[in-house]
Amino acid sequence: MSDARGMDGEKVVVRLYVLITLLAGVMGFVLGTIRPEDLDPELFGVVQLPPTPVGVAIYGLVTVGLGLGVFLGLVVYVSRRSDDDAGTRDRGPQ
């Protein structure tokens, strides 16, 4: 289903997800450029990244992208399951 402008909700959410993830990467790059003293990016407590602008940008992209991606995936899964269940209930006995 789409609204009057022809943009459906799923496209808006995906574009917002990409925008937020890219913003996290840009902010990581800015933070890496400032170089605070105790900056030590480590992905998931396992992968050590260099405290450079690119390393901190990668950390921001991966962390926010994965965190929001998992959440978004769960929301899509639940909404599709909910739509499927609602469709079978609306039909009534056959």
Rank of each mutant, 00 (worst) to 15 (best):
A86S: 09
E42K: 05
S79C: 10
L39D: 01
L66I: 07
D84E: 12
P41L: 03
S2A: 11
R5G: 15
A86T: 02
G65I: 00
P53R: 04
Q94E: 15
D40E: 08
L39C: 07
T52E: 11
A86R: 13
R89P: 15
S2M: 11
P51Q: 03
L23A: 14
D3I: 07
E37H: 07
F44R: 09
G73C: 11
D3A: 15
D40H: 03
G65H: 07
P41C: 06
P36C: 09
L31D: 05
R35I: 02
F71S: 10
R89Y: 09
A57C: 07
G28P: 04
I58R: 02
G9E: 03
P41K: 01
A24C: 15
D3V: 15
D8P: 10
L66R: 04
L49Y: 01
G69P: 01
T88Q: 15
A57T: 03
L39I: 08
I20D: 01
D40Y: 01
L49N: 03
A57E: 00
V14I: 08
G60M: 02
A4F: 13
V30P: 02
T52D: 10
R81M: 15
G65K: 02
P50Q: 08
Q48T: 14
D38W: 02
Y77E: 02
L43N: 00
D38S: 07
I20F: 02
E42S: 03
V46A: 00
V47I: 13
P93E: 03
